[in-house]
Write a protein that binds this DNA or RNA. Sequence first.
DNA 1: CGTCCCTGTTGAAGATCCTTGACATCATCA
DNA 2: TGATGATGTCAAGGATCTTCAACAGGGACG
Lengths: 193, 193
Amino acid sequence: MSGFDVGGRLKQLRMQRDLSQRELAKRAGVTNSTISLIEQNSVSPSVSSLKKILDALPVTISEFFAGEEVSREQVFYRASELTEIGDGVLSWRLIGARRPNRRMSILHERYPPGADTGEDMLEHDGEEGGVIISGTIELTVNGEVQLLTAGDAYYFDSRLPHRFRNVSDSECIIVSANNPPSFSDGGDAQHHA
Amino acid sequence: MSGFDVGGRLKQLRMQRDLSQRELAKRAGVTNSTISLIEQNSVSPSVSSLKKILDALPVTISEFFAGEEVSREQVFYRASELTEIGDGVLSWRLIGARRPNRRMSILHERYPPGADTGEDMLEHDGEEGGVIISGTIELTVNGEVQLLTAGDAYYFDSRLPHRFRNVSDSECIIVSANNPPSFSDGGDAQHHA
DNA sequence: CGTCCCTGTTGAAGATCCTTGACATCATCA
DNA sequence: TGATGATGTCAAGGATCTTCAACAGGGACG
């Protein structure tokens, strides 16, 4: 009924860490019986119990339930076959665009001089970070403005209002990653980034 | 105790969809009282109940628990202040190393000629992807071997056995991202990546 | 062999979650 | 005004989860 093997997943994570049921139970502040019953899927734990257990691993609930089936997806992407998303001014090349349930978007971005994600700040769920490969970019996050150059990097919660702008007179190249993916292949793609 | 406002989050999602407690309960196959008690944080629902409710929204458990406190973390990282992880041969520079609960690791990696993640393949939870900035890298994933050069990219499930090796005579630079993060600031960092 | 310590499993009792069936409140409408 | 239907809340009891305590099995060691 759960559609997800909670017990198996817990056991897997516990085993990976080389913990006994009793050891994990002690760290989590529950009893070994609880762990045993959950691992056998004899019960569906309460969120509070599961949280206690996962905190002891440590693993977030979100991570615990993320992913499942190991897929036979494409692994290698030639530069020429990266999905080009550009809108004429900016251009992004998305790695793994066609993966149905990927947890990240990785982008190879090109900001020509003057490129700008727009005056009204971007805000959306998730986190994003990146590295400046070449050139210079002006990044505004939550009101703070910084000029980043080759080798510099950033990482922030995407709910903070943010904006990318190339104020220099040369192209800027960035490799960035988003989580959860804000680009999807079709449908409800949010605007970058 | 939960550290996460389950009730508030559920109410938020229900409101967004313009559903009454009874309407949502009906779709989920539980009673309106259940929804009410959960939303007030009077109880910590069982995973199975929560799953039924979230399926009716529909929202995955992972999405439900993703994100929370918008933190006042560091956003901008100068090249010089990136956490250097190298072991003498390979070197990685981790973006956002000190963020407590980040969902990704973003790495600026340098593979000198001969660098190798080792003959016994890496396998761990999560997904990873990256872009080759310069040089050449030999990447093996699940038995398949490919030579990737500047502009090429990769993305795969990290549970597939994999290995990175610089078989050329020049340095290779890669920007990569992992999810969930396989590097932590202190403690049980797994080996790369 | 027996003892010791570890492992995971399992009844029965206790704690918590979930449902039943009320109740109070508010808005609509004759 | 009173009737109706919708909303969210709450007590009591049944259902489920969690603990306590016991149990069986497997090494290690003498």
